[in-house]
Nucleic acid binder design. Structure first.
Length: 583
DNA sequence: GCCGTTTTCGGCCCGACTGTTTTCAGTCG
């Protein structure tokens, strides 16, 4: 029987949740399945082993019923409960959840009353008036669904941080300089620095909600207006992303900022903590409950978001950590980490030049790094097996080393270029250069660039073999994923982290916004094993050194401090870290 | 379906906007 992957288990649970929604089941039961999906996605162990050992129920959010279902799934490869449920619904129904405005009730209605089972039929039904004639539907609903279908075709849903950051910053600037605006924040997944965002959430406080809202929906970025009310407006920008604006009074700002930053799971815990103190928390206020079960404590004054956390018995939780993945316990126990910041970075590794597939010369890359205030820059052009990227052979590599040495002499003692290589890991785990060549470099980034379709076990073995080479300083993009485009190759993250710890290999956060790999969800485990991180932009152009900020966002989501990130070390200290494995 | 410093039963976060309605259901976040 083929191994059932974590993703497959998570997908199965999510499908069950959707189907229970369509059946109109108890919403809390549905939430239980969604919580379990999240718990599985972030579970660091082996599901099959945990299932056989009967320890799945120990995972928070997974009780006996779901534990039993997961165990059945991972040990037998199938789950009758899921299969039988799925037989009740035409498969095309599930796609309708991706259409804005279509929820379980509307999907159920078009299916049962009009026998519509696919998005195509739904589009037809909207055009010929059948959908508008349904009870509870109307002309506007049908038109909205059509717009939702169009939008779905046009912009497949989510956006990478790198595609939206510039527009979002620009909007923040414009709101900040608005004469009627008091405070401004970008909230939501953007503030939490998720690797992709489904929308952008802006929040302002003002005495003139109408004027600010109208300027927001009239902004040059706006392609169409989705909703426009007194306190909430939604628009679609030309870039395709949906942007929401919430308008509140200034006294409400910290509550709204907290609420709209989320995550939803984080908010639920915040509200529970308020309830436990006899208070109710919403996006406008923290106040006493109408009918408290016990005598409530007096409600403290809240001016900033940090005051709110203090009131609920918590240290301030940085937005990147608000995923309800352990931050509350740490905030209670005063053990939250002081997260790494962009300003802590002193240099970076894994950058390309025109010698392989980069767009700028060695000199130009060095100048750009100096301009950013960095003390060192690692050059790791591709190796010969990456012929598609014009990878360097031994001769060209050694010539580049000479060129770098020469440039280093010119640049003086305050800045240094490190000689490196992004060496290909062959299918069998051997490297594209011999040790004798690698020994002449300051460091090596080892990466997989071909034969992606190995089994998880084979791919993991391949990568671990490469890490066992004492010249491999760090592991490049662990899964090779391209966000929203290509899934990563299958790897056993926990085993690779274990091997990195055992061999003293650094793991990269590839800060290219298309990658952001290794994923933030794995860093707490890596950190607990003592594995160090290097934040690398994988820059193919001078401008791409700016990607470092996206990498820092991921490091922060992974609970990393500057002590966990090697490229926060200054020149003079970083050298010994690069040489550790060789000793 | 999950969970427990009030609980092993009975709770489970809360509000805005839209559209189709004459007081609310559905969706979204």
């Amino acid at each position: 029987m083929p191994e059932v992957s974590k993703d497959q288990v998570a997908d199965t649970l999510e499908e069950i949740a959707m189907m229970l929604e369509l059946k109109g089941e108890n919403p809390f039961k549905i939430r239980a399945y969604r919580n379990a999906t999240r718990a599985i996605e972030t579970f660091a162990g082996n599901l099959r082993q945990a299932g056989e050992a009967g320890t799945l129920g120990d995972i928070e959010g997974i009780g006996s019923a779901i534990a039993e279902k997961i165990t059945t799934l991972v040990t037998t490869g199938t789950l009758d409960y899921h299969t039988n449920l799925k037989a009740e619904f035409p498969p095309g129904l599930f796609e309708m959840f991706d259409i804005s405005g279509m929820g379980p009730k509307k999907i159920h209605a078009v299916w049962k009353d009009l026998e519509i089972t696919t998005v195509e039929e739904l589009e037809k039904g909207c055009r010929d008036g059948r959908v508008a004639g349904l009870k509870g539907f109307g002309e506007k609903t049908a038109a909205n669904i059509l717009k939702g279908i169009e939008d779905r075709k046009k912009h497949a849903g989510r956006f990478r941080m790198g595609e939206i950051a510039a527009d979002a910053e620009r909007m923040l600037d414009d709101l900040r300089s608005h004469p009627e605006v008091i405070r401004v924040a970008a909230c939501g997944s953007f503030r939490r620095r998720r690797e992709t965002c489904g929308d952008l959430d802006f929040l302002v406080s003002t005495r003139e909600p109408k004027i600010v809202s109208e300027d927001f929906v009239g902004h040059e970025f706006v392609e169409s207006v989705i909703a426009h009310g007194e306190t909430k407006s939604s628009v679609r920008w030309h870039s395709g992303i949906q942007a929401d604006l919430r308008v509140v009074k200034d006294a409400e700002f910290p509550f709204a900022m907290n609420y709209f930053t989320g995550s939803k799971e984080h908010n639920i815990v915040m509200r529970q903590r308020a309830l436990a103190r006899g208070w109710t928390l919403n996006e406008y206020r923290l106040g006493p409950l109408d009918e408290p079960k016990t005598k409530p404590q007096p409600v403290p004054e809240i001016r900033e978001e940090a005051d709110l956390y203090r009131a609920l018995g918590l240290d301030f939780i940085e937005p990147e950590l608000r995923e309800n993945m352990g931050e509350f316990k740490a905030a209670e126990e005063h053990t939250l980490p002081k997260l790494v910041e962009v300003e802590n970075l002193r240099g970076t590794f894994h950058n390309h030049t025109t010698e392989s597939d980069g767009r700028n010369s060695l000199r130009e890359m060095a100048d750009a790094a100096m301009e950013l205030g960095l003390q060192y820059l690692g050059i790791a052009d591709h190796s010969k097996a990456s012929f598609q990227a014009h990878g360097l052979d031994e001769k060209r590599l050694l010539a580049q080393v000479k060129e770098i040495q020469k440039l280093n002499e010119e640049l003086g003692p305050d800045f240094r270029i490190f000689t490196g290589s992004e060496v290909d890991i062959h299918k069998d785990g051997t490297l594209d250069f011999d040790d004798e060549i690698l020994a002449q470099l300051d460091y090596t980034v080892a990466s997989v660039h071909n034969v992606f379709n190995l089994s998880e076990a084979e791919m993991t073995k391949r990568i671990i073999r490469a890490m066992e080479n004492k010249h491999v300083t760090m592991l490049g993009h662990v899964t090779g994923r391209l966000l929203l485009m290509r899934d990563g190759y299958a790897v056993d993250h926990a085993a690779i982290i274990e091997a990195a710890a055992a061999t003293g290999t650094i793991i990269e956060i590839n800060a290219n916004p298309r990658r952001l790999d290794m994923d933030w969800r794995w860093w707490p485990l890596a950190k607990s094993k003592g594995v160090k991180c290097a934040i690398n932009p994988d820059a193919h152009h001078t401008s791409q050194l700016q990607f470092l900020k996206f990498g820092v966002g991921i490091a922060r989501k992974g609970w990393l401090t500057r002590h966990d990130v090697v490229n926060t070390l200054p020149l003079g200290k970083i050298e010994s870290v690069l040489g550790t494995k060789r000793k």
